[in-house]
Design a protein around this nucleic acid. Sequence first.
DNA 1: CGTATCGGATACGGATCTGTATCCGATACG
DNA 2: CGTATCGGATACAGATCCGTATCCGATACG
Lengths: 223, 223
Amino acid sequence: MPGRVTLPKGPTKRRPQTTARLLEAALDTFAERGFHGASIEEICERAGYTRGAFYSNFRTKEALFLALFDLHAQSVVDRLTQAVDALAELPEDADPVRAVLTRVSTVDEAERRWYLLSTEFTLHAIRRPEAARALAEHDGRLRAEVAGLLGRLFDRLGRRPTVDLDTLARLTTAVHEGSLAQSLVEPDRLAPEELAVTFLPPLFDAVSEKRRTRRARGSRGET
Amino acid sequence: MPGRVTLPKGPTKRRPQTTARLLEAALDTFAERGFHGASIEEICERAGYTRGAFYSNFRTKEALFLALFDLHAQSVVDRLTQAVDALAELPEDADPVRAVLTRVSTVDEAERRWYLLSTEFTLHAIRRPEAARALAEHDGRLRAEVAGLLGRLFDRLGRRPTVDLDTLARLTTAVHEGSLAQSLVEPDRLAPEELAVTFLPPLFDAVSEKRRTRRARGSRGET
DNA sequence: CGTATCGGATACGGATCTGTATCCGATACG
DNA sequence: CGTATCGGATACAGATCCGTATCCGATACG
């Protein structure tokens, strides 16, 4: 009884290639037309395949959508993790809050597409409790990451938060999403990082207190 | 040939009735299925008409969508205006911030539908610059209302804001929308007013200073 | 070199949906 | 009481789109 699970013998090399292209085309198309507005046909066309290829790789349009969401969700988490790591290597005198914010709130085309996609997924989830659970789970992971980042941030600032970090992460996310939306609607009226840069520092300050001068800095001990 | 513009003589009584029902059915349907997902046919069905009635009252599905948005957008402004007025009649010792917040962040079914609709409209606007202008204009009116409300709020608190009220209104909106989204995705994990109630008071405090005890309670504070 | 198998293309049936063009009943008005 | 006009229904033609069933070429492997 060897683990002969799913080891095909024929020509089994192109599959990931194809799925990848389909996913990419799907991202473009969903971003342009929205979930319902995007037809499977157009997605396949853009990817350079026919519908046969699609149904050979995904069961339904929704499955494709979920796969796409998972994929990019993961990339967001990664990006945030990088931000956390980068924080450690920041010069001691830099303003860590601003550093993180400007890093996080760049709005390139990818970010724009991702916003459209994830917002549409949120709408989808509000209507479908099952999808809502999946989304909540992902948001939870993301939020944990944000909370960790905030923890380190306070640490560096020599302050101790007086509120639940998870809840503060919720707020931060809300601000980020909300202001991203506004800056996408009025690209030349509102810089995407403006709200966060303006209000988060004083807020962070307001919901934390100066740490009783215990516990020295762990990682980098230079002045 | 004087200005005989649109003065029909025949049976001209039912029209507003019909449009109203169509609009209502459209709100339901858009909320359930989304813009693209909702078919004109279903909307008419729910309203108790056929497609003929629709095309007699609207030029296209998008026109219907716009009309619906305008209608409800206006109702939101009204609601906020009421909140401002109600503020004036609050007992002197009440916490005005909390009072306003709980009033604004009730999430009934109507609010839910409105969120779905306006968010979808936002997505639509991000893709269509023309729609974006319309949305920006409405958001502007709304924001002015919010800014006025904030102004009165600070006034009552005996504080003077140190930041631009318009920008602060942007932030408030962002928080409201963002946290509304989160509470709709996880209805039993996050109360819709929790983020606002938790963080806005300390933030408002942080971005304002105690007023130099001059100038009694007039009607409105200038810079 | 033959062949089993996999990836993807083609072909097809069926379901919607959209607009328009036309028709009918009801009402305001002379 | 007759009739012009309006509101809305019906009928129709065209356009997608979806999902499946089937077919074909290519490759890994014996």
